[in-house]
Write a protein that binds this DNA or RNA. Structure first.
Lengths: 138, 138
DNA sequence: CCGCATCCCTATAGATACTG
DNA sequence: CAGTATCTATAGGGATGCGG
């Protein structure tokens, strides 16, 4: 990924890591779909390619957004989990989802979930984040 | 831009429009820097090319995020303004900025602004949005 | 001058096929 | 299962042109 930092603006720095078609979808799958394995990310509706997925998982690891570990049961499976910095992206996903629900033609069931989470305010977001931290311990 | 809708997930739909290196930086300049003219967007620190800028402004117009009008004083200048859907992106920029301020090495003055806005909660965001609507009337 | 359009060229994204 | 190798398509930078 581009190692050239173009400005010190916080929004720009976020976008230098997250500003592409796929990165936040991977985080979404970790947060809302409980996905952990390479193959699971591949199977999402949007159809990321294995090459792109591998690259993004690597840079997200390098940048401290997620960790890669071995599955204790299946020795072959790798397991991906969010770090605290990754869990902290929940509010970003929530606002993005709320905007999409309001201003794009989203599936109504998913739109309801997105708007519900946004309506819940900080308390709802903190509950999500706590749940993700709990998974991490298990 | 890709006309193929890959899923009805609100987050995906948001990313199909906003998920790239430049689009949200343009919105940022409209919201936080008060920029309105083509030439002003070109001059931002990140250095978007005129070609990319023109394309993004066009699709943002097509998708109802901003409008293009004539500057009443300079007949030559075009003026870009956010629609209500565009103004509604303020919370997305705020969470993205807050995350960048917390988890990337941002300039401290800008980081303070970002964290301050996030700390202000919904009330602070609504005040920003009201200010943008007021500009629109002037 | 202003907002683009066009051309050229390179870097990267991404599809497909395959491997340890 | 979790990636890599290879190949092709596209995004985008930079220079320049051009009508209003």
């Amino acid at each position: 990924m581009s190692t050239t930092r173009k400005s010190g603006c916080p929004i720009n720095l976020s976008l230098e890591l997250l500003g592409d078609r796929w990165t936040l979808l991977i985080i979404r799958d970790l947060v809302f779909a409980g996905k952990k394995h390479f193959r699971e990310f591949l199977q999402s509706d949007e159809g990321i390619s294995s090459r792109t997925l591998a690259e993004r998982l690597q840079t997200l690891q390098d940048e401290g957004i997620l960790t890669r570990g071995d599955d204790p049961s299946h020795k072959l499976k790798a397991i991906y989990r969010l770090t605290e910095a990754g869990i902290d992206l929940v509010p970003v996903l929530a606002t993005l989802g709320a905007w999409g629900a309001r201003h794009r033609k989203a599936d109504s069931d998913l739109a309801d979930i997105a708007e519900g989470l946004a309506a819940g305010g900080d308390a709802a977001l903190e509950r999500m984040k706590a749940a993700l931290r709990a998974e991490h311990i298990v």
